[in-house]
Each structure stands twice: as C-alpha cells, then as structure tokens.
C-alpha cells in the first residue's frame, strides 16, 4: 500500500502519457520484479537515513546545550559514522548478492527455442531458432512466451550497444566479439518498449524496440507465421510495388523471404507489415508512415544507413507502401 502510494506520488507526472510502456516502475518480468522490490527497500531505507541525517544536523545547529554536547564527541562519530553504516552496508551487500544469485535459479526452458539479438547501427536484428533448428530473422521486435524463462543471446555487429527492456529486466551490453546471455521471463502478457542504453553515436536516441509477451499458443502461432515465406501481393498495387521493390534494388539491403530480395545489410522485411513500428520504433506502422519513411528517413532518423529515396513518384510510393504493408 505504502509502495503504491509513494509510486503514485513519484510518477504522477508520468501517468499523463502512455505510462508504463518503458519503465522500471512497472515490472512485467521476473528480474525487473526482483529489482523493483530491491529498489523500494533501498529507497525507503535510504529515505529514513536521509531524514535522520538532516534531523541530526538541525539538532547540532539548533539544539540545547546538553544534546549538542552529546553530539560533539568521537564516540558519536564512531557510532553514527562507522558502526551504523557498517551494519547497514553489510546487510545490504548480502541482500544484493542474494538477489544477484537469484538469477541462477531460472534456467531457460528446455524446448530448444533460441533467440539472438544483434545490435546494429541503429536497429536490432532478431533471430529466432526453433527446436528443429529452423531459423528466421525479424527486426526491432521481440516476442516472448509468458511465464517461461527464455535465454536471449546478445551480440553486436559494430559498436557497443546495450539491450534494455526495463519492464522485463535490467540492461545487458552488446559488445563486439562477445556474446552475453540475458534470461528474460515475462510474467504478464502485453506490449512494452525498450531502447538502446549504451551511447552508440549518431541516432542512438532512435534505437528502440518492442517486446511482445504472449501466451504460449499465441506465441507459437506467431512463430509459425514468421517462419514462413512472405505472403504474395494481394492487390494490383501491391504487385506493382513488389516489382518496383526488386527493380529499384531494395533487395540489395533487405530480404523478403520467398522473393529474389535477399540482402542482409538492413532489416529482414518478410513480415514487416505485421510489426508495430518502422525504423526501430520511429513511426507507427501504416501505409502513410511507410511512404514518409522511404522518402524522408534521413530527416526522421538522421544518419541512419538507409538513403532517402526521393526518386519515386507519388504513385510508385503508393504501390511500394501497399506491398510492404501487405507483408503480414
């Protein structure tokens, strides 16, 4: 109750917006929950100590002669400055190490699911491998089955990034030449947001992703859908867009599985239409945003590695976005 109350007071300002979409205050993962408890224990304890220090200072300044005399000796310093902090810090150290050790007790599920996330300038390549070894790429979106610990392998393709989905867990860095493994256990279904936490130059501010925690059946359905090739274009406009996509050379950087587009430099677009955002969390995913991104991405997300394609006519842009949005 106390916790909720303080929480409310603290983040009242934050509740105005779409609060909780990317916040350590709203834990939806096992590690984030442990840390949340730790945070409140420390904040309340630290708050009491802080008030105590201020009160003692006030007494030292304003108190009566006797109480001031009692405060003005080495024994007081030994007690308040050495003995008390030693006890508190010892307890806190042990508590902190025990919480750290708790990470060991959640071995990842044994169904063979493997998720690898690679940080790239400035987006996230996400690779799923199922129990049979089938593998597919997606980007900027991580789907997790609720209630199951899943190991996520974190790597980097260029500079140091840091994978931070505060609602689920603390951050873990992605360092060239190293593989770090983060175990995520989503405790509630829902969509949350995450962001790169290690400054990676240029568009670091625009390197976001979504985490979608789903019940097991939904997750399995999503896996089946994503593992398959792209759906064929459903309309004439989309057909024209598909042809344009190939003839304009988009396939040099992007892959659309089941077509001739097999580039690996940029995000895999096989199921781009089913994702929540464009440009690593920059824009909501709809046809208008897609058009805007193709033409104007250097303004929307400066320095990103995709050139701005100002060569297309209005009609061509309609076709392209119809095609891409259709790739559900």
């Amino acid at each position: 109750m106390m916790r909720r109350l303080i929480l409310l007071l603290l983040i009242l300002p934050a509740l105005g917006g779409c609060a909780g979409s990317q916040s350590a205050f709203m834990p939806r993962g096992a590690e984030a929950e442990r840390i949340d408890t730790l945070f409140w224990v420390m904040t309340i304890g630290g708050g009491i100590i802080f008030v105590g220090v201020i009160a003692i200072t006030a007494v030292a300044m304003l108190g009566g002669a006797r109480v001031r005399r009692a405060l003005s000796s080495e024994p007081f310093i030994n007690g308040a400055g050495i003995a008390f902090p030693s006890v508190v810090l010892t307890v806190l150290l042990v508590y902190g190490l025990l919480i750290l050790g708790a990470g060991a007790r959640t071995p990842p599920a044994g169904d063979g699911l493997r998720i690898a996330v690679s940080g790239e300038l400035w987006w996230w390549r996400v690779t799923y491998t199922d129990a049979e070894g089938n593998t597919f790429d997606t980007a900027n979106e991580l789907h997790l089955p609720v209630g199951e610990p899943v190991a996520v392998e974190l790597t980097s393709a260029d500079v140091i990034h840091s994978f931070w989905a505060p609602n689920l867990a603390g951050k873990l860095d992605m360092i060239p030449g190293r593989t770090n493994t983060l175990t995520l256990t989503a405790t509630q279904p829902g969509v949350t947001r995450g962001q790169c936490a290690e400054y990676c130059g240029g568009a670091h501010a625009f390197m976001s992703f979504h985490v979608v925690a789903q019940p097991r059946e939904e997750f399995d359905a999503w896996m089946r859908q994503e593992a398959g090739p792209a759906v064929p274009p459903a309309s004439e406009a989309a057909e024209r867009g598909a042809a344009l996509f190939l003839s304009a050379g988009c396939g040099a950087c992007h892959a659309v599985r089941g077509t001739e587009a097999t580039g690996t430099i940029g995000p895999d677009l096989t199921h781009i239409g089913a994702r929540r955002s464009i440009g690593a969390g920059m824009l909501p995913n709809d046809a208008a945003a897609m058009r805007q991104w193709i033409v104007d991405n250097q303004h929307i997300k400066p320095e990103n590695k995709m050139p701005a394609y100002e060569i297309f006519t209005e009609a061509e842009l309609d076709d392209l976005s119809a095609y891409l949005e259709g790739l559900k």
Partner: peptide, 12 residues
C-alpha cells in the same frame, strides 16, 4: 553499488 539495481539504473 548494489549490482542488480544498477542493471536498471546504469546509463539511465
């Protein structure tokens, strides 16, 4: 300085 808390606070 408490490691798990720093996982959240670091670089924020």
């Amino acid at each position: 300085a408490v490691v798990p808390f720093d996982f959240q606070a670091h670089d924020s």
